[in-house]
Computed example of a mutant assay.
Amino acid sequence: MKRLCRVLEVNQSSYCKWLAGAEARAARQRQDLILAEEIREVYGGACGSPRVTAELRGKGRRVNGKRVARIM
């Protein structure tokens, strides 16, 4: 790993931290896919992320408007 980090000019400790976060990134990606399905159910094609966020919150889903906008 030391040689790989040197060749790629990457700090070894940063690489290890990135590698350790792989599980969290995968979990976040799965959650994003679930949220995308919920957005498809609410999104009628004519409304924007603020309205979709409000609809999701109205249904009891705790969600951030910026995240909804990113996924849309």
Rank of each mutant, 00 (worst) to 15 (best):
R51W: 13
G21T: 00
N11A: 12
G44Q: 11
I39R: 13
L4M: 05
R51L: 14
T53M: 12
L19D: 01
I34L: 14
G60M: 05
A54H: 07
V7H: 04
R57D: 04
T53Q: 11
G45M: 12
C47S: 11
R25W: 07
Q12Y: 09
Q29A: 11
L56Y: 08
I39E: 12
G60N: 05
V42H: 09
A46D: 11
R51M: 13
L35T: 08
E9L: 03
G65L: 02
V7N: 03
C5S: 04
R62T: 14
L56V: 08
R30V: 10
R40Y: 00
I71L: 15
S49D: 08
M72F: 01
R51P: 10
L35P: 01
R51S: 15
L4S: 04
L19R: 10
E41C: 10
E38W: 15
A20S: 09
R57E: 13
Q12G: 03
C16L: 13
L33G: 12
I71W: 05
M72H: 00
V52W: 14
C16Q: 14
L8Q: 08
R30Y: 04
Y15P: 00
L33Y: 02
Q29F: 01
S49L: 12
M1A: 02
E55L: 15
R67M: 04
G44E: 14
A54C: 04
R67C: 01
A69E: 10
Q12H: 11
R30E: 15
R30M: 06
R30N: 10
R70A: 09
R30C: 05
G45T: 13
V68P: 03
K66W: 09
S14T: 05
L56K: 06
E41A: 11
E23W: 06
Q12A: 12
D32K: 11
C5L: 02
C16I: 10
G65W: 04
V68K: 05
Y43P: 04
R25V: 04
G48K: 13
L8P: 00
T53W: 12
L33V: 11
G48N: 15
V63M: 12
R51Y: 14
R25I: 05
R28M: 10
G58Q: 06
R51I: 12
E41Y: 02
A20Q: 09
I71S: 01
M72W: 07
M72K: 02
V7K: 08
V63Q: 11
R61A: 01
K17C: 02
R70T: 03
R28E: 15
Q12I: 08
I71R: 04
